[in-house]
Amino acid sequence: MIGLALLTFVFVACASGNQTVSQTPEKITIAYQPGINYANLLIVKQLQILEKQFPKTQFEWKELSNGAAIRDGIIANQIQVGASGPGAFLVGWDKGVGWKILTSLNYSEFWLITKNPNIKSIKDFKPGMKIGLPSLDGVQAIVLRKVAQKDLGNPTALDQNLQVIAHPLGLQSLLTGQIDAHFTTPPFEFQEVERGGRVIIKSSDIFGKTSIASLFTTEKFYNQYPEFGKALYTAIVDATKLINQKPDEAAKILSHMDNGKISQDQYKKWLTNKAVAYGIEPRSFLKCGAFMHEIGMLNKQPKSIDELILPPLKGVKGD
């Protein structure tokens, strides 16, 4: 059972929130992707923080395989809030989706991993070799193109090698030799290294501290339901503090969410791994945007983080 003290620590704002319930739509769908990059959002889900603050709203939580699918759902108005990386977000921003960043979630490193002994660097990839990643405009693809530009003289040199595959399936495909490399995130990268995988690229070496996962919603939706947007932002801030200050308790919640299939100890090891970090400040959106514009993935590029953020992030350091 999750203790009362824990609920109090994480979401002291709920008491006041329950007394000032704002108008919200009848249903809100929140979409995210596999992995612990979304741990703070998953804590909000598991503790039903939003459901308690907005009891008249039906909340649907969806796990989708990549940011492109989430972006399509936002465009179709089937998803109101989506969690994804900067690549898919910036493509949508460029094409007029009208969404902005409500908060960052996670800055974990993501790694390109291989088990093929003949692959030492991206220079060793031959035609027909497969590199698995979640989408062609996701942040993994952006990092890979940046490295290809530097090491191969052409940012799209490896595009024919790319195979779109969800992280969990990519893990199994790498371990069984169906793909030659996998560009993935925690905890899948940790599991691959434990099973003999070798790291070829670390994202932190390319763009530095990067918001691998952030929460997005359209400016129209936020302006229509600002109290909900602020409540969600506050819930993420509190869940992030919990992970950073009390990882044992955060791990307990996540293990409880999985009905104990993944132990509390295992979650704590993942959450406290030096490659994993959680925070609300958007990071590396401008760097990614500049590079994507340079290679033709964007028609325009953001010049300031203020172009990309919603009101709760105003005054919060970001790039």
Rank of each mutant, 00 (worst) to 15 (best):
A5K: 14
L6G: 04
V10Q: 07
V12R: 10
A13T: 05
N18E: 11
N18L: 09
T24N: 10
T24E: 02
K27H: 10
I28W: 06
I30S: 05
N37Q: 08
L41M: 14
L42K: 12
I49L: 15
E51Y: 08
E51H: 07
E51T: 03
Q53Y: 10
E60R: 13
E60H: 13
K62T: 05
S65Q: 12
I70D: 01
I74R: 09
I75N: 10
N77V: 00
Q78G: 04
Q78W: 02
V81D: 08
G82H: 08
G85H: 09
P86V: 03
F89M: 01
L90E: 02
G92E: 04
G96Q: 05
V97A: 11
G98E: 10
I101F: 07
L105R: 09
Y107Q: 07
S108F: 09
F110R: 01
F110W: 08
F110Q: 07
W111N: 14
K120L: 14
S121I: 12
S121Q: 12
P127S: 06
P127M: 03
M129C: 04
I131C: 06
G132A: 13
S135H: 04
S135W: 09
S135I: 00
L136D: 10
L136W: 07
I142P: 03
R145D: 01
K146V: 03
Q149C: 00
P155I: 05
T156H: 13
A157L: 03
L158I: 00
Q160M: 05
L162A: 02
L169A: 15
L169F: 13
L171W: 10
S173Q: 15
L174T: 01
G177Q: 03
Q178G: 06
F183M: 12
T184M: 01
T185I: 15
P187Y: 07
E189W: 13
F190R: 14
R195K: 15
R195G: 00
G196D: 05
V199I: 15
I200R: 10
S203W: 14
D205A: 11
T210Q: 14
I212Y: 07
T217M: 15
F221A: 04
N223W: 03
Q224F: 02
K230A: 13
T234Y: 02
D238Q: 13
D238R: 07
D238G: 12
I243R: 04
Q245R: 02
P247R: 11
A251S: 09
K252H: 11
I253C: 00
S255Q: 00
S255Y: 08
H256R: 06
M257F: 12
S263N: 00
S263F: 07
D265Y: 07
D265T: 13
Y267D: 09
K268I: 06
L271M: 05
T272M: 04
K274Q: 13
A275W: 01
V276I: 06
A277Q: 12
I280H: 03
E281I: 01
L286C: 04
C288N: 14
A290Q: 13
F291I: 06
F291S: 09
M292C: 11
I295P: 02
I295T: 06
G296H: 05
L298H: 08
Q301K: 15
S304A: 10
D306S: 14
E307R: 02
K317R: 12
